[in-house]
């Protein structure tokens, strides 16, 4: 097992809610960090499209997601019928952190992050209403 969880970065297209310099800074610093990571264009779009990639993401509890508010991110996965696990995934909010703070949170060794586990996980009252539409 690696020292760090897998990192997923959401580019949050279409809206300026995450400052451009934060997104650019995080992307460049992740690229320069010598690690493997994944980027997606927009989690909202993926949720609306029921993108199968969300299932792959949700199946891996050992992940850090750089996106927006944890409550919203969890909701997007639930809406797609692929709720994130109750324990494990960490969500880093680029709407409130700058690039350096985001990178610090993303690159923390696993032990150091254990204490900041996400209270937002309590959001996950799994509902099957996301996927099975009529």
């Amino acid at each position: 097992m690696s020292d760090q969880p897998r990192i997923l970065y959401c580019h949050c297209a279409f809206a300026q809610v995450i400052p451009k310099d934060v997104k650019q800074g995080v992307l460049e610093q992740l690229g320069a960090a010598g690690i493997e990571f994944d980027c997606v264009p927009d989690l909202c779009e993926m949720s609306a499209n029921r993108d199968p990639l969300l299932q792959q993401i949700a199946e891996n509890p050992d992940i850090r997601i750089a996106a927006c508010y944890p409550r919203a991110v969890h909701g997007l996965f639930v809406a797609a019928g692929q709720p994130l696990p109750l324990a494990g995934p960490e969500i880093i909010n680029m709407r409130t952190l700058n690039a350096a703070e985001t990178m610090e949170a993303l690159m923390k060794p696993r032990e150091a992050s254990a204490g900041i586990q996400i209270h937002e996980n309590e959001f996950l009252e799994t509902s099957d209403v996301g996927a099975d539409r009529t």
Partner: peptide
């Protein structure tokens, strides 16, 4: 990475 994401494709390093 930015340009490919803007085109709507996921990217993996």
């Amino acid at each position: 990475m930015t340009k490919i994401l803007e085109r709507g494709f996921p990217v993996t390093i």
